[in-house]
């Protein structure tokens, strides 16, 4: 019994912990489920601006931070297709940078 207590296996404590985590899950879901979409969209708008910054040099817009943003390009490639489609460009806007 004593051992159980020490290693955190007290069934009562476990039960309370499970109940608390359940309560936490419920509260978080109720809190966020209604606004998840609106927040994700707002975040995407900010990310879109960041994409423009990172790829600006390639589109002929001088970017003093190009040396640093170049490093980020491979990381953002996954989102590139999604981004140019959303910006109303059916194909990749960059001549030397094919996407689809």
């Amino acid at each position: 019994m004593h051992d159980d207590h020490d290693t955190g296996h007290d069934p009562r404590r476990e039960k309370i912990r499970a109940w608390l985590s359940q309560a936490r899950f419920f509260a978080e879901e109720v809190y966020s489920s209604r606004y998840r979409g609106a927040i994700a969209r707002a975040r995407r708008d900010e990310d879109d601006l960041f994409m423009l910054l990172v790829f600006s040099e390639m589109m002929g817009v001088p970017n003093p931070a190009a040396y640093y943003t170049l490093e980020l390009q491979p990381l953002l490639l996954e989102r590139f297709h999604d981004w140019h489609k959303r910006m109303g460009m059916e194909r990749s806007p960059l001549d030397h940078f094919r996407c689809c």
């Binding site: 419920f26 879901e29 109720v30 489920s33 209604r34 998840r36 979409g37 994700a40």
Partner: peptide, 19 residues
């Protein structure tokens, strides 16, 4: 994971009712 998320019916009722 954003707009379309299968949600437990009690949670969904909670946020539907309060809305």
């Amino acid at each position: 994971g954003v707009d379309f998320v299968p949600t437990n019916r009690f949670i969904l009722w909670g946020h539907h009712f309060t809305s």
